[in-house]
């Protein structure tokens, strides 16, 4: 029995992203394609998203010109490929406040948004620091926080302090403080609804970018594989490794069940297709009675 279907939907990508950004210490090892994706969870009369991407009107030209970000498509187009309208989304889990995860709340007019309280509070704190510490404010747009004020007004923003179970039936939130960002979180889906689930999916946000963050090369320490954290952390790589261990523990150490949304090779692990827009849809699992959106 599976309660939910889960799809990873690509909405844009960078062709040549330096590998050291996604994998700590991978200097001079070239570039990888970095897809920008969000996750759609459908079932139990809900449609939920993990992150909402960014709004191309605000950033598109700059990102295209300066960083080579290509082929941005709106949620209407991206979700349309799996038969969903943005207006049908009722819940959005924001794993962290970077512009490419929290930058498009306007396209989901009927959704309630969940974010860690600490992600907002530490933003206020970071903004108050001297200019020489400006690095600690990277990739957050004040405009996204301003739009958060509107969400709060409309009672569509919920700030969470740490873990929260059963936000939707069988879906839990888990905090990874001072890791990739100050108040990052990941989402677990217990797809059989059991407290001790045998069918759990971990949606890792940016706590895991690529497979090597979970199964990195361990030859240098005489091990086959070790956790190798992502490169970018305003918190610490230690906290990233600890969060990885916690996620893996929840997944009974089955690495396949920890889903990295920036991983291009996820298409080699799960059924996938490329849409007419040149963007990938990956089907992680299907709820009972749901039809595949990538095959047939």
């Amino acid at each position: 029995m599976s309660d939910y279907s889960i799809w990873v939907c690509e909405y844009s990508y960078v062709k040549d992203y330096h590998k050291s950004g996604v994998l700590y210490g991978a200097h001079n090892q070239g570039y990888v394609k970095l897809p920008y994706c969000y996750v759609v969870i459908k079932g139990r009369d809900h449609i939920a998203m993990v992150d909402v991407g960014y709004n191309d009107k605000e950033y598109g030209k700059h990102l295209g010109d300066k960083f080579g970000v290509e082929n941005w498509r709106s949620p209407k187009t991206v979700l349309g490929a799996i038969g969903i309208k943005p207006e049908e989304v009722d819940t959005c889990f924001i794993t962290h406040a970077h512009f490419d995860h929290f930058g498009n709340v306007e396209d989901f007019p009927n959704a309630k948004f969940y974010i860690q309280e600490r992600e907002i509070a530490k933003w206020v704190w970071a903004m108050s620091l001297p200019d020489r510490m400006r690095w600690m404010m990277i990739a957050v747009d004040p405009g996204d926080i301003v739009r958060g004020v509107d969400l709060a007004r409309d009672k569509r923003l919920v700030t969470v302090d740490g873990s929260l179970e059963n936000v939707l039936p069988g879906i839990d939130l888990h905090a990874a403080f001072d890791s990739h960002t100050y108040g990052s979180m990941w989402v677990t889906v217990r797809n059989d609804g059991k407290e001790q689930s045998d069918d759990i999916w971990v949606l890792a946000g940016d706590l895991v970018y690529v497979f090597e963050n979970i199964a990195g090369p361990g030859g240098a320490v005489d091990l086959e594989e070790i956790y190798t954290p992502v490169g970018l952390a305003v918190g610490s790589q230690t906290n990233l490794v600890m969060a990885t261990e916690e996620m893996m523990k929840q997944a009974n150490y089955e690495a396949k069940r920890v889903i990295p949304v920036h991983e291009e090779r996820i298409k080699d692990v799960f059924p996938s297709r490329t849409t007419s827009e040149g963007l990938r849809i990956t089907e992680i699992c299907l709820a009972d009675g749901e039809t595949s959106k990538v095959t047939g």
């Binding site: 960078v14 062709k15 040549d16 992203y17 330096h18 950004g21 570039y31 970095l34 950033y59 700059h62 990102l63 300066k66 960083f67 080579g68 970000v69 970077h98 512009f99 490419d100 400006r134 690095w135 404010m137 990277i138 990739a139 957050v140 747009d141 004040p142 405009g143 301003v146 940016d206 970018l232 920036h262």
Partner: peptide, 29 residues
């Protein structure tokens, strides 16, 4: 306030709302 400041943004002049250095989108070019 945000809208006025947004209109006053200019990448050429170094007046940018988001610091993309080292950000998720930075491809190192």
């Amino acid at each position: 306030a945000y809208q006025n400041l947004s209109r006053a943004s200019s990448h050429e002049a170094g007046l940018v709302m988001v610091d993309f250095a080292n950000a998720c989108c930075s491809c190192g070019r």
